[in-house]
């Protein structure tokens, strides 16, 4: 569309010029006209001021009380929620903690025991039994996480698998140490902490995908 220099473009055209929406040729024609026509230049400047004025209207701050009203009703995840997959995992964890408690305190697990300090061999057996229970709990959690289709992101999956592999490597090392020194309390505490870390990590993942 040709804009002759003696034609005054309507506001809509000037507005489109302001946003750079006109073709190059049209824009040149309008600019030539604006250079010559005081009244059109004035209208153009008024439109530009108007655009700035509207932009400034966006500078308001939402009051904090809006979030305070939203927060109690927002669908925030609870830190621990009992669901179907937790039951076998929880049972296995309880058993693991019982066995580890025995190995630390030195009491025999069998009913009717005489309360004497457990032998290194019995303590090692307790740790091994606790490990079996822990591994059972971890397997349940890992199966619940890996089976969750909500975790589509391969990057996230890889990150989690790497974190789990690091924990597994440390567990393996500690188990070797404990085979040589079954009464090493520090190594047992580290082992428990590692198992717990793995359980926590998997629990968070399953909870995140279970919503």
């Amino acid at each position: 569309m040709k804009a002759r220099n003696d034609q005054h473009p309507p506001d809509e055209t000037l507005s489109a010029r302001l946003d750079g929406e006109l073709t190059k040729r049209r824009q040149q024609a309008i600019d030539t006209h604006l250079a010559d026509c005081v009244s059109c230049r004035q209208r153009y400047e008024q439109l530009a001021d108007l655009r700035q004025g509207i932009q400034r209207l966006g500078g308001v701050q939402a009051p904090e009380r809006i979030w305070q009203a939203i927060r109690p009703a927002a669908p925030v995840r609870q830190s621990r929620r009992v669901t179907w997959w937790m039951l076998p995992a929880a049972a296995a964890l309880a058993a693991a903690l019982a066995w580890l408690g025995f190995s630390w305190l030195g009491h025999p697990p069998a009913p009717g025991g005489n309360g004497q300090e457990a032998s290194p061999r019995a303590a090692l057996q307790a740790v091994q039994q606790a490990e079996i229970e822990y591994v059972r709990a971890i397997d349940t959690l890992a199966a619940a996480w890996r089976g969750n289709t909500k975790f589509h992101d391969p990057g996230l999956r890889r990150e989690v698998e790497q974190s789990l592999a690091v924990i597994d490597g440390a567990v393996k090392k500690l188990r070797r140490q404990l085979r040589d020194r079954p009464r090493d309390i520090e190594s047992r505490q580290q082992l428990l902490a590692l198992y717990q870390r793995k359980v926590d990590l998997l629990s968070e993942l399953v909870l995140a995908g279970d919503e």
Binding site: G58, Q61, A62, I66, W67, A74, P75, R77, A208, G209
Partner: peptide
Amino acid sequence: SGDEQALRSLYDTHCHRAY
């Protein structure tokens, strides 16, 4: 997934313009 920090972050990003 109900992560409160993420919900708050979405709120912070958009609340002023929405208001």
